[in-house]
Simulated assay, not measured.
Amino acid sequence: MTAAFDGLLAGALDIERTETGLIPRRLPAWTRPQITDPYMRLMVPRPAGVRLVLRTDAGALELDVFVTRFRNAYFPLFPVAFDAVVDGTRVLSRPVRDGDLCIVRAGAVTDTVRGVPETIRFDGLGPGWKDVEVWLPQAAVVELRDLRADGAVTPGRLPERKWVHYGSSISHCAEAGGPTSAWPARVARAAGLDLTCLAFAGNCHLDPFVARTIRDLPADVITLKIGINVQNLDSLKERTFGPALHGFLDTVRDGHPETPLVVVSPIICPTAEDRAGPTVQDGQGRYHATGSTSGLTLVRMRELIEEAVASRADAALSCLDGRSLFGEDDADDLYDGLHPNADGYRRIAERFHALVFGPNGMAVPGA
């Protein structure tokens, strides 16, 4: 009964209607024909940052859902959960136990264990009227089927300041343990921001359709955390990376000429600092840069990003070195040599919040 969700969804830019429910998607419908990569097609409906925003006097809510989970073939399944945030402070987390489970190798689904629908119940919400946000699992595909409550439900209010963030798996945060533990979600909640999360694991390649999406969205702050996927796939060379970044920034600026815009370079990845991609998994699932002769190292990529930002006459544009978020001293928390674990994402959130949205932050007007 998809009408139950009318006016409640935030962070989704498109809705896929099915025979039994609806699937939130994180890019507009017009982008569908332009998404030619199969792995990107798997990322757009994974609802990082998507939540139901409502006001209710109910003591309990129930969601009927069908969830498709994804497990890297080399590692155990990371926790998949729905989180309810009550009045901005109390977080209730409910694990996903059923639904499909897809096994992924090198970005492709190689096996699927079929599952069944389930009901996610949040009880103990407390008496009286309250604001509730139900954050959907950031690294699963969620079909919403019905919403029930033992009281009234009305659309809630979103924060006034809008933040659009673009990034890779290191912003998608499959390993974070839950949707509100992903670092962009932590930052948005701490800073009181309405988040639109355009983080696509394996697929942050400066695609023009993403730039046009950001151009057309309302935004008070825009952040772009770029580079690692380009190195991973060796998808752009020194000749093309700089122009692609400038073109992306040009398009964004067409819609947001004066909006604070922060470009964030890659965090530490020891195997790729001085070796170019592609980056591949070994037999234990750890990532290693293979060192192509014509590719970009992370050291060089950070230099190119800094040069591109510095070359633009743009007082509202700044560059943040990703190693200030997660650097050499943090590398032990790269569980596979590339991705942070849950503790690593927590530290990224704390540092990003301070550097970008703190009292003298890069996105604070006049700072």
Rank of each mutant, 00 (worst) to 15 (best):
P208H: 14
R114T: 07
A81R: 15
D37P: 01
L224P: 03
R148S: 06
P208S: 10
Q284V: 01
V96E: 05
A367G: 12
V264N: 13
R105H: 11
V262T: 15
L63V: 03
V142L: 01
T180L: 08
G344C: 01
E303H: 12
H246D: 04
A272Y: 07
D111F: 02
S171H: 02
A313E: 14
E273W: 04
G21R: 00
R157I: 15
Q138L: 02
V264P: 11
S93A: 11
P28M: 07
T112C: 05
G283V: 02
G128W: 04
A81H: 04
P218S: 09
L147T: 02
S265H: 13
I226E: 11
I222K: 05
A272T: 09
A313M: 07
V142Q: 00
F82A: 06
L158V: 13
D14H: 11
G99S: 03
V252S: 02
G291A: 10
A191F: 04
A84K: 10
R51M: 06
E118P: 00
G247E: 15
D146C: 00
H288R: 14
T279C: 14
A219E: 09
E350L: 15
G344S: 04
R97G: 01
E118T: 01
S318E: 13
D14P: 03
V221T: 15
A354M: 14
L9I: 07
G128R: 08
I228K: 09
A4W: 00
R114V: 05
G295F: 05
A106L: 08
Y287P: 02
K162Q: 14
W135K: 02
L355S: 13
A191P: 10
V164E: 13
V80L: 03
L325S: 07
E328M: 08
S93V: 04
H288W: 09
R71F: 01
A176H: 06
R323A: 15
S169K: 10
V280C: 03
R275N: 13
T271M: 08
Y166F: 11
S171Y: 04
T110F: 12
T271K: 09
P28Q: 06
L147N: 04
L77G: 10
L101M: 09
L317Q: 08
K225N: 12
C269S: 14
R17M: 00
A10L: 07
A308H: 05
N203I: 05
L9Y: 00
L125I: 06
R32A: 13
Q34L: 15
F75C: 01
G126Q: 04
N232I: 03
I348L: 15
S311Y: 01
G202H: 03
R105T: 11
G255E: 06
T154N: 08
G202F: 01
D57Y: 05
S171G: 12
A201I: 06
L198I: 08
G7Y: 01
Q281S: 12
A4D: 10
A73N: 11
G242S: 11
L63E: 00
A73W: 07
I226F: 08
L304M: 11
D282P: 08
L249H: 11
G295C: 09
R114M: 04
R148M: 02
R90Y: 06
G151S: 05
G128I: 09
K237N: 05
E160L: 14
